[in-house]
């Protein structure tokens, strides 16, 4: 464990906590894409398959359970909670997220480290996580005013993978130059997708004005 990866995990955890707080405190999920949240549940389910078969550390197991639990409860709130589900922007959150999942799965069948179920599904989760934010970014462009909590949620979500990129650079130089193209390139794509959001988020923060994404 290095400080970059710990910072990345904490940033990721904070983003999820902020989203849960927004939903529970305001009883609203306006501006949040259910498609992205569902993709994240798939990402965690396919990535943490060996949760009960491989014990790494107390931290690793705990964080996996927290990520699974929180992401599933967010989808539950947005789908089934009587008050929250009324606030879901169903008519704007129209991104066909299966169009994202299927190519990722096919790519994982083609490019992976070893052809086993666990490994292919793990690789699928890495590819899927890279593009899972797209429905959310599209929804942000459609929804005129973005509330602060939603903006902070997306920013922290993008920042976590950027910190992981730094972690991978650190590990490359400190752990006998092991190359790990699949997470590296996926993480690079994932972080790049946030580029224009980061630009508008930092601009709105500097000018102390409402966050607005150009349509």
């Amino acid at each position: 464990m290095n400080v970059f990866r710990l910072a990345g995990d904490m940033t990721h955890l904070l983003s999820i906590i902020i989203l849960l707080l927004k939903i529970r405190a305001t009883k609203s999920c306006t501006g949040i894409s259910l498609k992205t949240q569902e993709l994240y549940v798939i990402v965690f389910l396919t990535r943490y398959l060996d949760l009960f078969t491989k014990y790494i550390s107390f931290y690793n197991t705990t964080m996996k359970l927290v990520f699974l639990g929180t992401s599933i409860s967010i989808v539950w709130y947005m789908r089934y909670h009587k008050v929250v589900k009324q606030t879901y922007n169903k008519d704007q959150d129209t991104f066909r997220h299966y169009f994202l999942a299927i190519p990722c799965f096919l790519l994982a069948l083609l490019i992976h480290h070893e052809f086993t179920v666990i490994e292919v599904l793990w690789t699928f989760s890495i590819y899927l996580e890279a593009v899972a934010i797209l429905p959310q970014l599209v929804l942000l462009q459609r929804s005129r005013n973005i509330d602060n909590l939603t903006g902070n949620y997306v920013f922290l979500l993008g920042a976590y993978r950027a910190l992981y990129l730094v972690n991978w650079v650190y590990r490359y130089f400190t752990e006998n130059h092991l190359v790990r193209w699949i997470p590296w390139l996926s993480g690079l794509v994932q972080t790049t997708l946030y580029a224009d959001f980061f630009y508008y988020y930092i601009k709105s923060w500097k000018n102390n004005e409402k966050l607005q994404l150009p349509a």
């Binding site: 990721h12 550390s57 790990r180 997470p183």
Partner: peptide, 10 residues
């Protein structure tokens, strides 16, 4: 060993 290396990350 490559896969093992990946395993410790979330």
């Amino acid at each position: 060993q490559e896969r093992e290396h990946l395993k410790d990350e979330l």
